[in-house]
Simulated assay, not measured.
Amino acid sequence: MPTGVALHDARRQLFDAAARVLLRDGPSELTSRSVTTEAGVAKGVLHRHFTDFDGFLTELVLDRITQIEAQAADLRDATGSVADNLTNALVKGFEPVMVSIIVLVIARDELRRRLRAAGTAHLPLVGEYTAMIADYLRSERAAGRIAADADVETLAPTLIGAAHLKFTEKSDTAPEAVHKVVTSLLSGNAAGTRDVDH
Results as ranks from 00 to 15, higher is better:
Pro124Val: 09
Leu46Thr: 05
Arg108Glu: 15
Asp172Ser: 06
Arg113Cys: 02
Val181Ser: 04
Leu46Gly: 00
Glu176Lys: 02
Leu165Asp: 10
Phe56Gln: 10
Val5Asp: 05
Thr154Gln: 14
Asp195Cys: 13
Met132Ile: 00
Arg24Gly: 04
Thr66Arg: 15
Met98Tyr: 06
Val21Arg: 10
Leu7Ala: 09
Thr158Gly: 04
Asp25Gln: 07
Ile68Met: 05
Val178Tyr: 03
Leu46Trp: 09
Ala156Ser: 00
Ala42His: 14
Ala107Gly: 01
Arg113Trp: 12
Thr37Tyr: 13
Val41Asp: 09
Arg116Ser: 11
Ile160Gly: 04
Ala118Pro: 07
Thr193Tyr: 03
Asn88Ala: 15
Phe94Ser: 02
Asp25Thr: 06
Ala117Gly: 07
Thr183Val: 15
Arg116Gly: 07
Met98His: 09
His8Ser: 02
Ala73Ser: 14
Asn189Trp: 14
Ser139Tyr: 14
Glu169Arg: 04
Glu128Gln: 06
Glu169Leu: 15
Ala134Thr: 01
Ala142Gln: 14
Ala6Val: 12
Gly55Thr: 11
Met98Phe: 03
Ser32Tyr: 15
Ala73Trp: 06
Leu22Trp: 12
Asp109Pro: 06
Tyr129Lys: 01
Ala89Thr: 14
Thr51Ala: 14
Glu169Pro: 02
Gly192Pro: 06
Val45His: 04
Asp195Pro: 12
His198Lys: 02
Val5Met: 12
Thr120Val: 13
Asp63Pro: 04
Ala39Cys: 14
Leu115Ile: 14
Arg108Cys: 14
Gln71Ser: 15
Arg24Lys: 00
Ala19Met: 09
Thr120Trp: 00
Thr183Gly: 01
Lys170Val: 02
Ala162Asp: 02
Glu128Val: 00
Gly93Phe: 02
Val45Glu: 03
Asp84Tyr: 04
Leu125His: 00
Leu186Ile: 02
Gly144His: 10
Ala42Phe: 06
